[in-house]
């Protein structure tokens, strides 16, 4: 039952982890087994008419390496605009996090906003993750390590109330947050 989602996620996770996790091959395989389980649950929790969730990777966002000017957005990214997608990345560790949003990046980044402001180490492929409009007052606790997020992708320029511009956003469903503030996230669903 895991064959299809595994086929979609395995390459991404392999690239994400293998180079730096040579001693952790066994745990990595456990991760590969766990993520589809979560994905399956997410799919079953959705309405029957919900279109299938597609996997997308940071490396598919635009042409790499970046050219001499701006980013050349890929057809894959543009086709995912408005679609439900699943994205694997790292939650940016912020000194001054803002409620209702956080950033997801293809590699770990820490922000020292007080000292550095927007002179940051965010890669161009940074995704702004937005909570449901009813949850805009909620501050998401930072989590180390890879995070699998499912939501609706929005592509295009958007300027927030501080003037910060994002080009790719992921809108999470209300269920993406635990039901109680400060509650530990649910343990991964083990199928074995």
């Amino acid at each position: 039952m895991f064959a299809a989602p595994l086929a979609g996620l395995a390459p991404a996770l392999s690239r994400l982890r293998l180079a730096m996790m040579a001693p952790l091959v066994a745990p990595l395989m456990a991760a590969l087994l766990l993520v589809p389980a979560t994905a399956a649950l997410a799919a079953s929790a959705g309405e029957a008419t919900t279109p299938p969730v597609r996997d997308i990777k940071f490396s598919q966002f635009f042409r790499l390496p970046v050219g001499d000017q701006g980013l050349a957005l890929s057809d894959t990214l543009l086709a995912a605009d408005g679609q439900d997608v699943r994205l694997v990345g790292y939650m940016v560790s912020q000194e001054q996090p803002r409620p209702g949003r956080f950033w997801l990046t293809p590699r770990p980044v820490r922000m020292s906003e007080h000292a550095d402001g927007e002179a940051d180490d965010l890669p161009p492929a940074t995704v702004t993750v937005l909570l449901d409009p009813a949850q805009q007052d909620r501050l998401v606790a930072h989590r180390d390590g890879l995070l699998v997020l499912t939501g609706r992708l929005r592509v295009g320029r958007a300027e927030d109330d501080t003037g910060r511009v994002s080009w790719v956003r992921l809108e999470l469903a209300p269920e993406a947050l635990a039901s109680q503030p400060g509650a530990p996230a649910a343990a991964p669903h083990h199928s074995h």
Binding site: L13, M20, M21, L24, P27, L28, A30, A31, L34, V35, T38, A42, V88, Y90, S93, P97, P99, R107, P108, V109, R110, D121, Q135, D137, R138, L139, V140, A141, H142, R143, D144, G145, L146, L147, V148, L149, T150, L172, E175, A176, L177, A178, S179, P181, G182, A183, P184, A185, A186, P188
Partner: peptide, 29 residues
Amino acid sequence: ATPLRDPQQPMAKSEPLKWYPPTPSERDD
């Protein structure tokens, strides 16, 4: 291994996410 400490946790975590009221009063990372 990367520009920020990567704990090399064995599992990719998924939703739901832990959250707080707007004032950060606790960290668990």
